[in-house]
């Protein structure tokens, strides 16, 4: 195999690992924003998921309990955000940031005793035949269960939003609360549910990070991946399927820069380190026109700064 292919294969293998947690958070933020709300507290929800998922796994010895605890912890934090923005009508951006800071503090404190703990964790399970495919097989089909669930969740969410009555209601609330209200939907209830579901998914993403990818908890371990998810929602134009491309591109950029370092490419590791963010920014810059058209109406006020 020549060097180019080797680099690509390496980047692909590296893409899925760090991409999955971001993907879950992106799914969560898509649901939240489809209901016309934005949640910058998603980074905090990821931390909650990573921390409490890990702690629950250590305490019970059961990684599935950990996954569940992580998801619930992520949801619990996002419900604080939901209460404040939906019922107290606070500024969504400021509230989200405060919620993230709060989550960071809570997890740093609650997770202190677990930094050195070891867990069995979720390990990769190779899918027969598929995992033997050249290049892609190894990258995509030798992953943990949460990764496989994430592959399936994208199309499922897309179908949910597009073809089910619940999906329709959610989108209606996101487009125009008055119309949705007139049609018999309670916008507040739908938005709280959407933000809660978003936090649940972000919590799962955090749990994937601590339970499957790293088998470790360290405070602040999400390192801004929740904020990347917020950007990827715009990149994916509020589509869960396109969000998958975004998340793997982000993961791929991390994989690629480590791969390039490993083969000794004469490029500064510091420049390489900017890769994921440069790609995200570039994509935002190029796609924003198209993205604006697909943005839920209810979000436009927030993003234009009028609320």
């Amino acid at each position: 195999m020549n060097t180019g292919l080797l680099v690509l294969a390496g980047a692909l293998t590296g893409a899925v690992g760090p991409g999955i947690s971001v993907l879950y958070a992106t799914y969560g933020e898509v649901i939240t924003e489809k209901a016309g709300r934005i949640n910058l507290g998603i980074e905090g929800s990821m931390l909650m998921g990573a921390c409490f998922g890990f702690a629950a796994t250590v305490e019970t010895g059961n990684v599935l309990v950990g996954v569940l605890a992580g998801a619930l912890a992520g949801m619990a934090l996002s419900l604080i955000h939901a209460y404040l923005v939906v019922f107290r009508n606070t500024n969504q951006l400021a509230t989200g940031l405060a919620v993230t800071l709060f989550g960071a503090g809570v997890t740093a404190y609650a997770g202190r005793g677990y930094v050195g703990s070891s867990i069995g964790g979720l390990n990769p399970v190779a899918i027969p035949l598929l995992s033997e495919l050249p290049m892609l097989g190894k990258a995509l089909f030798r992953q943990d269960l949460l990764a496989y669930a994430a592959y399936a969740l994208g199309p499922l969410l897309w179908a949910f939003l597009r073809y089910t009555r619940w999906g329709l209601s959610l989108r209606a609330v996101g487009e125009n609360t008055s119309v949705a209200f007139a049609a018999g939907r309670n916008p507040a209830r739908w938005q709280v549910a959407a933000i809660g579901a978003g936090g649940l998914l972000a919590g799962l993403g955090g749990a994937q990070l601590s339970l499957a990818l790293t088998h470790s908890w360290t405070d602040g371990m999400t390192a801004g991946r929740g904020f990347i998810a917020v950007a990827l929602v715009i990149f994916g134009m509020w589509s869960p399927v396109r969000a998958m491309i975004g998340a793997f591109l982000f993961g791929g950029a991390i994989g690629l820069q480590l791969q390039l370092q490993t083969i000794g490419a004469p490029i500064s590791p510091f420049i390489l380190d900017m890769f994921p963010y440069v790609i995200t920014l570039a994509v935002l810059a190029v796609w924003t026109g198209a993205a604006l058209r697909s943005m839920p109406e209810g979000l436009k006020g927030v993003l234009k700064g009028t609320i």
Binding site: I254, Q261, T262
Partner: peptide
């Protein structure tokens, strides 16, 4: 010897990705 930088004193996600990438290259 292959020398790789993670640009962080403690980023477990990057550490794991680095190990996986390097194992793939035969280290």
């Amino acid at each position: 010897t292959t020398f790789v930088l993670t640009s962080d004193w403690c980023d477990p996600a990057k550490q794991t990705t680095a190990v996986r990438t390097m194992v793939d290259s035969g280290i």
